[in-house]
Amino acid sequence: MSKKKFEEFVIKLSEDPKLNQSYVENPEAVMKDFGLEDNEIKAVMSGETEEIEKLTGTKAVCINIVMLMKDDK
């Protein structure tokens, strides 16, 4: 698997409030039920950004909201 499976899980969590609620209440069980691997579950449960980003990738530069000195700089 498994990067694809993990991404599928994260996308599903964002689309399904009921699954998301179950995840908030019992993350380990929900991840196991979804078929994630032990190392993935361990990484998420650790809460360590670095470990989680190994699975998800890192945030992109997300500043398309910039309008800084739009007129003249």
Binding site: I11, T56, G57, A60, V61, C62
Partner: peptide
Amino acid sequence: LMPHPIAENWLDSISREHISLQ
């Protein structure tokens, strides 16, 4: 222009052709 690689992969999966501007 998306804030995360997963979001880009999601767009890959639901579109015919996807180009990131990042």
